[in-house]
């Protein structure tokens, strides 16, 4: 997964989102070890201090656990991960709804588009 960082949003926020995404999509499964700050920073070509800050945020959110001697790993608390998945899903949907509203669709129309598309994709 490439670190596609946008130039007009804080780097730190984007790092948090990217790592969250990697955790929730299974690139780093529950309990997996996370690479070191330096390696992650090099991979994303960002300042290690910024990466450090992003990891601290994820730790505060409960997705990452820091071990005293052996680096960091992903939480094994599946409830925690499920919570984060739902939060991100809600964010995605609210962004989508915002755009649909701008395009002038009402609730019923939006629901019918979604239903139709889900069936199409299902085929």
């Amino acid at each position: 997964m490439p670190w596609d960082l946008k130039p007009d949003r804080p780097i730190y926020t984007q790092l948090v989102e990217h790592i969250e995404w990697m955790i929730l999509s299974g690139v780093y499964p529950p309990g997996a070890k996370l690479p070191s700050v330096r390696d992650l920073a090099r991979e994303a070509s960002v300042n290690p201090n910024t990466m450090q800050r992003a990891l601290a945020q994820l730790e505060e959110d409960g997705l990452i656990i820091t071990h005293r001697t052996s680096g960091r790993s992903i939480t094994e608390d599946s409830e925690m991960i499920q919570k984060a998945r739902i939060r991100i899903a809600r964010e995605q949907v609210s962004e989508f709804l915002e755009k649909m509203k701008k395009l002038g669709f009402d609730k019923k129309e939006i629901l019918s588009i979604i239903n139709n598309m889900i069936e199409e994709v299902g085929k």
């Binding site: 090099r42 070509s45 300042n47 290690p48 201090n49």
Partner: peptide, 10 residues
Amino acid sequence: LETIISNYNP
């Protein structure tokens, strides 16, 4: 830049 990052002491 990668060289700078990987040798950087925070």
